[in-house]
Simulated assay, not measured.
Amino acid sequence: MIFDLYGFGPALAAGALMTIKLALTALALGLVLGLLGALAKTSPYKSLQWLGDSYSTIVRGVPELLWVLLIYFGTVNAMHAIGAWLGRPDLELGPFAAGSIALGLCFGSYATEVFRGAILAIPRGHREAGLALGLSKARILWSLILPQMWRIALPGLGNLFMILMKDTALVSVVGLGEIMRSAQIAVSVTKKPFTFFLVAALIYLSLTIVAMIGMYFLEKRAARGFVRSSR
């Protein structure tokens, strides 16, 4: 079936590109936050454990849409104060930055649990072997723990990224021109909701398929040298 896009094809393509940028930016932020959260939750220090638990519990307990709205509208006064100090009283957090922070914050809270489970799945004897070889804790973390954790966590992170790709549609409520926002504008002009929402669905599906292929090769690469049990 060939859709008549009424001249909105370039706008939808630009929206798809914005969705990709938003998802990748949120992914980068979320991976950092998730790793820090997991290291905090598996730390022997109670204060860090409490910090990690608080982050994952609070963020996961609030819907993603509310985080987008809270960060976008809740930072107005703070950004104006910073702008006044910098001599730019009109300084504000744009939709892309607010959406990236909100989605990255949410992704990181779920990634925290994925990373934590992966860390706990690594046999304790590996750490003890590193200590016996005279490796520092930082070297053990970097050379022994993180490579194994990455392999174990990849499937879970892949699922979270699929969800993140679709959650980018939430940022349309603050005016970011991603796929859903572009489709909504096209619908309001052409009065063809089925056509443009179906096209938006196909774009999301295409992006998801590409992401799944990318995850397959990442998992394959991470599993190099790892011999699975035949049982």
Rank of each mutant, 00 (worst) to 15 (best):
I2G: 12
I2S: 14
I2Y: 11
L5H: 01
F8Q: 11
P10H: 10
A11K: 14
A13E: 12
T25Q: 12
A26V: 07
L31R: 03
L36T: 09
P44N: 10
P44T: 06
K46W: 13
Q49R: 15
W50Y: 10
W50E: 10
D53T: 05
Y55S: 10
R60N: 12
R60M: 08
E64A: 15
L65E: 11
L69C: 10
L70T: 05
T75K: 07
T75F: 07
M79L: 13
A81S: 15
A81L: 15
G83Y: 00
L86F: 04
G87N: 02
R88S: 03
R88I: 01
P89R: 00
P89M: 01
L91P: 00
E92G: 12
L93P: 00
L93A: 03
G94I: 00
A98K: 06
I101C: 06
I101G: 07
L103I: 04
F107S: 14
Y110Q: 11
G117I: 06
H126W: 12
E128A: 12
G130Q: 10
K137I: 00
L144H: 05
Q148N: 13
R151K: 12
A153E: 08
P155R: 08
P155D: 08
L157W: 04
L160W: 01
M162R: 03
D167T: 09
T168N: 06
L176A: 06
E178A: 10
R181I: 00
F194T: 11
F196N: 03
V199Q: 06
I203K: 07
I209G: 02
I209T: 08
V210W: 01
Y216T: 13
L218V: 14
A222F: 02
G225P: 04
R228D: 13
